[in-house]
Design a protein around this nucleic acid. Structure first.
Ligand code: FES
Ligand code: FES
Lengths: 148, 148
DNA sequence: CTCATATCGGACAATATCTATCTGATTTGA
DNA sequence: TCAAATCAGATAGATATTGTCCGATATGAG
């Protein structure tokens, strides 16, 4: 009942990138200031590429860039990009894993609760979170670089 | 972002016991019809005793019994009895685990979402779930025993 | 009193998942 | 041609989950 470290990294990363939405970021540029293991972050960014949240370019001036406005990226989308479709119980995705499958009294309850959770996660955008960051000089150091 | 097998077992178990709220159930009497590994269930039941949802008695006519009405046991209470206080992110319990601790933009969002989730879990009672079970003969076989 | 029946408490083993790293391949632009 | 970067996959290490076992303890029946 807890998000993974990976998801936490993923959100931190997007909040960071959202402050320069047009810049092409390399893995290192994001990993260092946010304290994320670079090679782990690389994996996360590739999931974002596959789910369409980021685009990537290889080679010398390559890196990753947001494909849409931070205001259009919700926490739900981020979590599902990283963890796959959210499901509170195994049986939500394949019902057979519950041995009581045919008449489980809890199933519909879980479905409703999951719906409420997903709806709530869909209300929060990366933009909202990025706007909340304090802009202190020390913090700015991490993002004070040239870019488009 | 998913409940554990243990929690799933825990809920199944309470739904089963709720159908004979006054009966003293042994581990085996609950484990078999619900398909829960007996020695694993024993651990779960002990957590319930510690959290006050069940009382226990040792010895010959011993077993476990609900300490209050199924209508007064919520999913939230069950989950917290088994998994401990719910927290969607590590930092919700000890903030220091997030390296950005002092100014994490996501923190307040998680707090709100967690609040919504907890509130929703608090709406569902074991009674509500138990009432939903279908009463078919085959199913009844599992609970057709004498008792108080 | 004795004994079968249960819970209690802890240690323990087997998996599975999560976290992280490394490597070689590929693409790109200077 | 070469350095900079992503891409894809294998793999290792740490941690959490799932499940088992056993000795201790308490209890009521006979
Ligand atoms: S089958 Fe979904 S909760 Fe049991
Ligand atoms: S400190 Fe809580 S989400 Fe980062």
């Amino acid at each position: 009942m807890r998000i993974s470290r990976e998801t936490d990294y993923a959100i931190r990363c997007l909040i960071f990138m959202a402050r320069r939405p047009l810049k092409v970021h390399t893995v290192m540029e994001v990993a260092r200031p946010r304290g994320i293991p670079p090679s782990f972050l690389a994996k996360i960014l590739q999931k974002f590429v596959k789910s369409g949240i980021l685009s990537s370019a290889r080679g010398v001036r390559g890196g990753f860039r947001l494909t849409r406005s931070p205001a259009d990226i919700t926490l739900l989308q981020v979590i599902e990009a990283v963890e796959g479709p959210i499901s509170l119980n195994d049986c939500m995705v394949e019902r057979e894993t519950c041995s009581l499958a045919s008449r489980c009294a809890a199933h519909s309850a879980w479905k409703e609760i999951q719906g409420v959770l997903a709806a709530k996660l869909g209300e929060y955008t990366i933009r909202m979170l990025a706007d909340q960051e304090e802009y202190t000089p020390a913090f700015e150091a991490g993002i004070a670089e040239e870019g488009p």
